[in-house]
């Protein structure tokens, strides 16, 4: 499933607190990127029925380079503000407490044209609102993430610098609110614009704790869903429901393109 490329890079970054609840960060990146082709000079066992697929996700049967070898010089600036951030001051520092309100991030990334031999020329902006574990008392807790972004200039950029989405096509995977559980992770990357939303609610045993023996299992019921729309993937939706015990989760879900069902299945994480 994974597709690789090679990168030689230098990165400089800084993050600082500009005001209480407001973090600013700046990153400068220089990278030289190459495509890679799969090869093998030794096999324990040659299965004639199976071949490596190429490192180009769009041409799995032929090793067509997805992009030329190129240099990218870019800068990323972001601001993250947590509404109603409270903190504790102690002699050894300032400690943020969990906020009751969402966190907002705005980000600007510029791919410089011609600077230090750079072959890219793009400008990308994105905004996100996120909040984890919003308590609803006995009803459990909710988490959500909503984001939108746009390349306001996409004169020259190559696939590694596209906006990528956290997809997944495996049955077993590590959980992450940002992840689309039924979306291919390479096919729908965009160099234009997108809107995405994710939400999950954990009932923390609200229903199952009412069933006498079952409550001993300490299972937590959860439901969730995701939405993505971009020129490459219009109106994609997914919904899932499942049970969780500590860090083990099992869920069943459905994915749709508009009203058309794409896939359904179990996910374990």
């Amino acid at each position: 499933f994974p597709k690789f490329y090679e990168k030689t890079f230098v990165n400089l970054n800084t993050t600082r607190e500009l005001a209480s609840g407001l973090q600013g960060s700046l990153s400068l990146d220089y990278a030289r990127n190459h495509t890679l082709t799969n090869s093998s000079d030794f096999k324990f066992f040659d299965n004639k029925e199976r071949e490596f697929t190429s490192n180009n996700p769009f041409t799995p049967t032929t090793e067509t380079p997805l992009f030329p070898t190129y240099t990218s010089v870019s800068a990323t600036a972001s601001l993250t503000y947590t509404i109603g951030q409270q903190y504790i001051t102690r002699p050894d520092g300032k400690f943020y407490t969990e906020s009751k309100y969402p966190r907002i991030t705005v980000l600007y990334k510029k791919g410089f044209k011609d600077l230090l031999g750079s072959n890219v020329d793009y400008d990308f902006v994105k905004a996100e609102v996120y909040q984890d574990r919003i308590s609803l008392g006995l009803w459990g807790y909710s988490s959500f993430l909503v984001g939108a972004g746009k390349f306001i200039n996409n004169n020259q950029l190559y696939y590694p610098d596209f906006k990528h989405f956290a997809g997944n096509i495996s049955t077993i995977f590590p959980p992450n609110l940002r992840k689309f559980q039924y979306l291919d992770f390479y096919q729908f990357s965009t160099n234009q614009q997108y809107f995405e939303a994710h939400a999950e609610h954990n009932f923390a045993g609200f229903f199952l704790n009412k069933v006498p023996l079952l409550r001993k299992a300490k299972l937590e019921e959860f439901i969730g869903g995701g939405y993505l729309s971009s020129p490459e993937k219009r109106n994609y939706k997914e919904f899932y429901f499942g049970l969780q015990r500590l860090v083990l989760r099992v869920s069943y879900g459905f994915a749709y393109d508009g009203g058309r069902k794409l896939t359904q299945g179990f996910r374990i994480s």
Binding site: K7, V10, P57
Partner: peptide, 21 residues
């Protein structure tokens, strides 16, 4: 405030999300 720097050469996933899944 934090300041960091890194450099290197390596093989990365094409979607840059740092995970194969």
């Amino acid at each position: 405030a934090t300041v960091g720097a890194s450099f290197g050469n390596g093989i990365f996933d094409l979607n840059n999300l740092g995970s194969m899944t």
